[in-house]
Amino acid sequence: MLIKIAKASDVKSSEITPKSLFDGRRNFLKTAAIAGVGFAAGSIAPPSFAMTGHGKQIDGIQPSKWTQESLGEALTDYPAVTTYNNFYEFGTGKQDPSSYATDFKPKPWSVVIDGEVDNPGTYSYEDLVSPHQLEDRVYRFRCVEAWSMVIPWVGVPLADMIKRFGPKNDARYVAFETLNDPERMPGQRSRVLDWPYREGLRMDEAMNPLSLMAVGIYGEELPSQNGAPIRLVTPWKYGFKSIKSIVRITLTKEQPATSWNMAGPGEYGFYSNVNPSKSHPRWSQAKERRIGEFLKRPTLPFNGYGEEVAALYDGMDLNEFY
């Protein structure tokens, strides 16, 4: 018998915004933006009425239990989400990615799946994504630099994808790699980091329902500066764990090397769970500035997703395994 235990972040089915209403809001906003009153609408409308962009709409997205209503926090405006980015492949300035990723053509795209899997191979983007049901998921996003956003992602649970690859029993970690192509990613011409960008998760972290392979934001295809065409989102970890523009997923027996950990092992651990009590050499992690707000707000353990993920780390000293 399946016993469903309700969690604090769960939302009653009655509270889920019907898609028609959700779409209606989007249409309203599109119209408002076209009419040139987007700014005015953004300032007088309720927080959920953040502006949408001009990207390509994705069809057939299902709602999930992670809605803006269940989170109870305002969405970060689309312009902020798409112009304030850390994506060093396109430059180290916050506005560099949106400035220099304009010519980046994310498709066609393919992803190499290898390591401890039964079905290795090179998967086209379509092969990778289309067998799955896309979901809308509103997550908090907390950067290690002590700023945060609330972003409505569109994506596929990572667990579903990994199951299709046929993970072998001795697969204990999942390693990810970003595209390494200085021609297309000009920021890679300087060695800010040891390219390609690498990230990794423990298998149980990857299989956690929160882990998402995102292909869109705000119901639209992912803009290049946000990691097009496919990226990871792990909302209980600092943002740099959510690796962008993924070209390789490898299931491994050993813990994979990860970029920021290689660059500064004393600053960035493999786990990098959001932890307000573990102070960072550069930033106190006790508070964060939500983009669009003036005063800082307290940072929540696991970015507020403790009920979903805290059990993954039972018996671990998270000050040691940061």
Binding site: T76, D77, P79, A80, T83, Y84, K94, Q95, W147, R289, I291, G292, F294
Partner: peptide, 8 residues
């Protein structure tokens, strides 16, 4: 001034 004017 970017989306984070205080930092900028």
């Amino acid at each position: 001034l970017t989306a984070n004017p205080i930092e900028f």
